[in-house]
Amino acid sequence: MPLTFTLDPAITPALRDGILDLWTDVTDAGGAVGFVAPANREEIRPELVRHFAQMAEGRTRLLVGHDEAGEVAATAFLTRNTHRLMTHWLWLYTVMVHPRHQGRGYGRDLLAAAADAARAMEGIEAVRLTCRGGLGLERFYGSCGYKEVGRVPDAIRVAPGDDRDDIVMLLPLR
């Protein structure tokens, strides 16, 4: 059964906790979402609060995918650029699908829903994201229409002696 996507949902304690659980589970499964396993909810919480603060400022929008049981199964944050010469594209952050739902096409569904949301935003012509090298994520994003437009070698230090490339991907919307 497909996920049900909601753009700009009301932030309730249940949604907040669902996103924290998702972020923790994705991290623990080896997902490249800003933390390294083992995940700690209290370490992740301030980052989620920062996302919520950007939402309150009107710079960021939240896209949430719920599964058939109503549980948070996927998220992506769409963040507008504040630089006046770059307002025609936005960043896609914290793209996550719960490990129990991976392999069902939900990642593609999430990216398509995010692209649709971006197209509906006035003046947005492209979506940009970064991903951690060494996991094949650039191949996945490429299969969804994104193009690699930059790479910073060894920019992400996962652990001492384990540096990964920071890969910049772009999806033109026109």
Score class of each variant (00 low, 15 high):
1 M>F: 12
2 P>R: 15
3 L>S: 04
3 L>R: 10
4 T>C: 04
6 T>Y: 09
10 A>Y: 01
11 I>T: 06
15 L>I: 05
20 L>T: 02
23 W>N: 01
24 T>K: 11
27 T>I: 05
30 G>D: 11
30 G>S: 10
34 G>Y: 13
34 G>E: 10
39 A>P: 00
42 E>W: 02
46 P>I: 15
50 R>T: 10
60 T>V: 02
61 R>I: 06
63 L>K: 08
64 V>H: 11
66 H>S: 06
66 H>R: 14
69 A>Q: 12
72 V>Q: 04
72 V>H: 09
76 A>H: 07
80 R>Q: 10
89 W>A: 03
91 W>H: 11
99 P>C: 15
102 Q>C: 08
103 G>Y: 14
104 R>E: 05
107 G>N: 09
109 D>T: 12
110 L>G: 03
110 L>Y: 10
116 D>V: 01
120 A>D: 01
128 R>S: 00
128 R>D: 02
128 R>G: 00
129 L>W: 01
130 T>A: 07
134 G>W: 14
135 L>C: 02
135 L>H: 15
137 L>Q: 09
138 E>D: 09
144 C>L: 09
150 G>C: 03
152 V>S: 05
155 A>F: 12
157 R>I: 14
158 V>S: 10
160 P>T: 10
163 D>R: 15
166 D>R: 14
168 V>M: 11
171 L>D: 04
